[in-house]
Design a protein around this nucleic acid. Structure first.
Lengths: 182, 182, 182, 182
DNA sequence: TATGAATGAGTGTTCATTCAT
DNA sequence: GATGAATGAACACTCATTCAT
């Protein structure tokens, strides 16, 4: 039965990411249960609160991205940097809507903050290696990089955006972060 | 009593901008009424639907920004450009959450779309003059500029952001949009 | 100004008969004001309560019918009887929906009861003359006659009824009320 | 819990018949919940709309009457006829107010129309057998019979009616429908 | 006196959460 | 442990009634 429970938990989280990613906090817990193919009671047994459910889904998303960042360690620093930024914006798009939900309801929960920090650390690494390689301007900090990434992710998620517009916007950000020549 | 009614309308819109700007669609119409200091019935007399209320608040916000853009026509093109981008991000921060609200509920209403277009035209003007003055790269289009502005506005609105982090992020965007030297 | 006030009163009552006749209690006082071409405040100045407005409209309707009954005094008794029954059912159709409204809200008000009694007296007269002429069975009382009339009026008002079905139903009632032959 | 749910459904329908029968559409869903002894949410889980609730209650009422009509098949045709007419008027009294409710809101829903047709068919049977036995005039059709029944039911429901007045009115209708002698 | 803006209690409906099965 | 029915607080919206103009 442990097995079933763990499987259910995973299915619920996947459903939650879909539902809340698409509709933000407006997504209903029952819709999550339906997509996960479990009863509503099961969802609440695993996550006693809608907030905790969102938090867990967010955490999972952060951890995925963290893994991705680590995997890029082997690549060429400049390429890794561009790949990561692009990936975070494009893949994180819908799901980042989750963040505002939690912010609304009284602060970032500890566990999610921790996951966020782990991700930030991983991004920091890729950033630093980019700076060391002279591909990113030395004065840049993770904080504004993060903000820019979140910004484009959320903006493109909340309004229909032609892919090439998003691409050009990403290019602007990458250019703005590159070492000024001359 | 026309006088009172107009005053109330204005107070309701101001309250709506606060409430929906801060909480998105989740903000309740009753909270708007409370902040405006009027009865719930009064809100609905002026705006027969929550959606129409949000739409009107959005329109007002767009028009404010459009006015601001036009007022910058007298300034030095490069300075005007930087001032406008910064103003749209900072002032529009909370309120831009409104856009996603309406997008969710089935498309941009006509009047708001029109106001949005007027604003976009005004921004276009400032942008073009910046390009003519050599302060902004020639290849930039309003579309990605808009996306970047919306992104930073929304991102900084949905999560506590230290002012200097936002400032540095804006600098990155402005740098990315400036004519590459060398 | 007295003149205007009286005119307004009359227009409001006519509008009320239309509105409540068509929608029952569900009709809104504002709709009445709109159709009467006056402000909502004016309606409430004349009739301080929705209930009193309905009551007055009902009373007016009763008085119209009473007048009609009196006018029939000159006719042949049997014909007068048939004409009155038919007229009350057909003309009173929609408007009799009003009665249930008042019944709901705690009893028939005095003034309406008085008007109803005046009407009942007039009907009684026509009925008695019909009985004296041998056209109506002697055992019939106004009470059941009234009930039958109200029944057909309400029933045909609350559901689309082909005219000939209503005609045949009226014939049944008249036959049931006629002196049994043999 | 299927058991409980079915019990609740039944209690809700019974309460709905009472409430809407007595007050028409004006009856509130919350009152229904209160009388059924369940929470308001439970009512809406079973009937997602006030309209659907009314429809279901109406359908139940029709089906009860249909059953009753069928049960009379064994009786003497003339007696069966009188019993049915009387039963439909007396028992259906309050509840028939429901019909006008639905008629108001844009037409008779399909399921209720079907139930109504089943009932009409059953009444038709009893009527025909009465006609075959010479107890009911041959020219009578279900249509006007229905109208007369609905009329007395509604009229006696919407205004306090002494039982003997109603009885005499029913006698008038039955007399009017009987084969004219002589 | 007429007007119509303001009010707020009341209604239909949704949804997070609890709990009997 | 899983289920889904039950709950009730919260919300959008309506409408009779009041009152400032």
């Amino acid at each position: 039965m442990r097995q079933d429970a763990r499987e259910n938990r995973e299915r619920i989280l996947a459903a939650a990411e879909e539902v809340f990613g698409a509709h933000g906090a407006a997504g209903s817990t029952e819709e999550v249960a339906r997509r996960a193919g479990v009863g509503i009671g099961t969802v609440f047994r695993h996550f006693p609160t809608k907030e905790e459910l969102i938090e867990a889904a967010l955490l999972r998303h952060f951890d995925h991205l963290t893994g991705r960042a680590h995997a890029l360690a082997a690549d060429d620093p400049a390429a890794a940097w561009r790949t990561l930024v692009r990936a975070m914006i494009v893949s994180g798009a819908t799901k980042l809507a989750l963040i505002s939900v939690l912010t609304d309801r009284g602060g970032f929960p500890d566990s999610a903050a921790a996951a966020s920090n782990r991700l930030k650390a991983a991004v920091s690494d890729v950033l630093r290696r980019g700076q060391d390689a002279g591909a990113v301007r030395a004065s840049a900090t993770v904080e504004e990089v993060y903000l820019l990434i979140r910004g484009l992710a959320q903006a493109s998620a909340t309004m229909p955006t032609p892919p090439d517009t998003l691409d050009r916007a990403i290019d602007v950000v990458l250019a703005g972060l590159s070492e000024p020549t001359g």
